[in-house]
C-alpha cells in the first residue's frame, strides 16, 4: 500500500447517489457531490439535515447502503476507516473528540499515527506548533484539562499532522467565542492556500460562504442546492434550508 505524498493533485472525491440508513430509516437519500482539489467546498444545512452522517459515510464509519464514494480514483465506499485515512483524507471531527487523557503532544502524534518517518513527523509538528504556539507551550498538559478554545487547537492541529490531501472539518466553530471563530476561519483558509483541499461542514452560513469556493446545501437528507459560493449567497434554497 503506497500512498502518494504529493498533496496538490488528486482525483476529486466523488459522492455518487449515496443513501445512508440508520436501521430502516434513510438519513441521506440520493446525495451526490464533488469535492475538488485546491479549494474549500462547504456543506451547509440545519440541525438533523444529515451533514454529520455524510461525513461518517465518507470516512467509513457508517458505510452507505447504496451508492458509491470514490477518492483519488479508487472506490472507497466499503473500506475500513483506517484504509480511507491512509489514502489521504483526514478529519477534524465534530465536538473536537480529542483524547482527554493524553498529553497535547500525544494527541498530535495520534494525528500522524500512520506516518512512519520520524523526520516527517517532526517537520509537521514544527509546522503545527508554528500555527498554534500555545500547543507547544502546553505540549505536556493533558488535553482534557484545557479550555475549549485550546482543545479546538489540539483537534485542528491533530488533523493537520499527516499533511492530508483532503481535510474534512465538521462544525469547527461550535461552542467557540466569536473571536476564536474568526481565528478558525482564517486558519482554514490558510490550510487551503497551502494546498490541502477542505470539505467544511458548518452552520455558520455567512462566514462559511465568505471563505468557501463552492458549496452544497443539505436539507432533510437531500441535496437541495449546489454551486459556487457566490451563487449560494443569493439562492433562496439556502434561506429555505435554514429558515423553513
Amino acid at each position: 500500500m503506497s500512498v502518494k505524498r504529493e498533496k496538490a493533485g488528486f482525483e476529486p472525491l466523488y459522492i455518487d447517489n449515496v443513501y445512508v440508513a440508520y436501521g430502516k430509516a434513510d438519513v441521506l437519500s440520493d446525495v451526490s457531490m464533488e469535492i475538488l482539489p485546491g479549494r474549500i467546498t462547504c456543506l451547509l444545512g440545519g440541525n438533523g439535515a444529515g451533514k454529520s452522517t455524510l461525513i461518517r459515510a465518507i470516512l467509513g464509519l457508517t458505510p452507505p447502503r447504496q451508492g458509491s464514494i470514490a477518492f483519488d480514483g479508487v472506490d472507497i465506499t466499503h473500506e475500513a476507516p483506517h484504509r480511507i485515512v491512509a489514502r489521504g483524507i483526514a478529519c477534524i471531527p465534530e465536538g473536537r473528540r480529542i483524547f482527554p487523557k493524553m498529553s497535547v503532544y500525544e494527541n498530535l502524534l495520534m494525528g500522524a499515527y500512520q506516518e512512519k518517518s520520524r523526520a516527517r513527523i517532526r517537520a509537521t509538528l514544527e509546522k503545527v506548533y508554528a500555527l498554534f504556539p500555545r500547543l507547544e507551550e502546553r505540549s505536556r498538559q493533558l488535553a482534557g484539562t484545557m479550555s475549549g478554545g485550546e482543545q479546538a487547537m489540539v483537534s485542528i492541529g491533530r488533523g493537520l499532522m499527516r499533511a492530508p490531501k483532503l481535510l474534512v472539518i465538521d462544525e469547527p466553530s461550535l461552542g467557540l467565542s466569536p473571536a476564536l471563530v474568526n481565528e478558525n476561519f482564517r486558519i482554514i483558509r490558510k490550510i487551503c492556500e497551502e494546498g490541502t483541499a477542505v470539505f467544511l461542514v458548518e452552520q455558520n452560513v455567512r462566514q462559511t460562504l465568505a471563505i468557501a469556493h463552492y458549496g452544497y446545501v443539505l436539507s432533510q437528507g437531500r441535496v437541495v442546492a449546489g454551486g459556487t459560493a457566490e451563487d449560494l449567497k443569493k439562492a433562496e434554497q439556502v434561506q429555505k434550508a435554514y429558515f423553513g
Binding site: R97, F99, P100, M110
Partner: peptide
C-alpha cells in the same frame, strides 16, 4: 505506538479510527 493506539481506542474509539488506527 501500539500502546498509544490502545489508549486512544479506550478513550474514543471512533476518533482513534479517524486518526487511522486499525480498530
Amino acid at each position: 505506538r501500539l500502546g498509544m493506539a490502545i489508549r486512544a481506542v479506550a478513550q474514543d474509539e471512533e476518533a482513534a479510527q479517524l486518526m487511522g488506527v486499525n480498530f
